[in-house]
Computed example of a mutant assay.
Amino acid sequence: MRIGLIAADPGHPVLAATAALLADRHEVTIVDPDGPAGPALADVYLLKAHTRRSLALAGELERRGAPVINSAAATELCQDRVRMAELARAADLPFAATRDAGRLAELADPAYPFVVKSRHSRRHDLVARVDGPARLRELVARWPDEPVVTQPFVPGTGWDQKLWVVDRQVFAARRRSELADGQGEPGQGQDWEPPAERAALALRVGEVFGLDVYGVDLLDGPAEPVIVDVNAFPGIRGRSGAPEALAALALRVATERGRVAQARGR
């Protein structure tokens, strides 16, 4: 089979490990996310890049009949934090209250403390805790025209709960929040086995968003866990078994496509 990786960084650990698992028996092709689709279709594509051009490329491949993991539409939805929150709350998921605040420079009369994020999720986007006017002025000076959303600050335990799902297999870790008070190095990680209800919540997110490979960021709210972000095809670094699950997913989807094509040809 031929597996295409739409990725700006094919050397990313989870992609490199997945490609190594597949390469012995299958052809793994790196697809430039800023380049043309090419005349020959792969049996399945893994969409790791999230730029506008890569989403357009994935959409073109889908229109030509190729399966893409995750779909272009599902990936694009997760780039817009307003649409993400609207879909989640409409499905009764415990998503943080998310308000479209327009341009950061136009943000008026906020209730401190709060969290401000770029509306459009991307690498090196804005995610910051704002405790008062001085901090807000500092951010406005750097990001005046940035379209943003605001969310209430959830103190939680100071640890972000990271759940990653690959084809309904749940992987998890906890990381010290960069937005929390207290001791601990921001980004510091530790292994974590999520309770069954949180794993089930992560699986429900995939059903609602139409995702096969994704991440869910949780915090401990006053009464229930709070979802603060959903990421299509995250890094899933250092999780044993994740590359194997991703390789198995790619082969399963490619095989299913082949069976459908064969049936149509009869």
Rank of each mutant, 00 (worst) to 15 (best):
A172Y: 12
K162I: 02
A141R: 14
G156I: 03
V130Y: 02
L107V: 09
H124Q: 12
L136V: 05
A128P: 10
H124W: 10
K117N: 03
V115F: 10
Y112C: 02
A101V: 03
E185I: 09
P155Y: 10
A202C: 09
D145C: 06
A111L: 09
K117R: 15
D160Y: 01
A196F: 08
W143N: 07
G158V: 03
A128I: 13
Q190F: 00
Q188H: 15
R103I: 05
R135K: 15
P147T: 12
G182V: 05
F114K: 12
V154E: 15
D191P: 02
R129E: 13
P110R: 06
A199D: 11
V148D: 08
V115C: 11
D191L: 12
D181Q: 07
V154G: 07
G189F: 03
L104I: 00
V140L: 10
A105P: 06
D167R: 04
Q169K: 15
A199M: 08
A108R: 15
V140K: 14
L136P: 13
A134R: 14
D109V: 01
R122D: 07
V115A: 07
L139N: 06
G189M: 06
A173Y: 13
D191V: 02
Q169I: 03
R174D: 00
G158Q: 06
R119S: 00
P133Q: 05
G102E: 07
L203A: 11
V127A: 12
A108D: 11
E193C: 09
R168E: 10
G184I: 01
G158E: 02
L139D: 07
L139C: 05
A172L: 06
H124E: 12
E178V: 02
E197H: 15
A196H: 14
D131Y: 12
P155I: 08
V165T: 03
F153E: 13
A172I: 07
A172C: 10
D160S: 00
R176N: 03
R137V: 07
Q188M: 13
P186H: 08
D181H: 05
E185G: 01
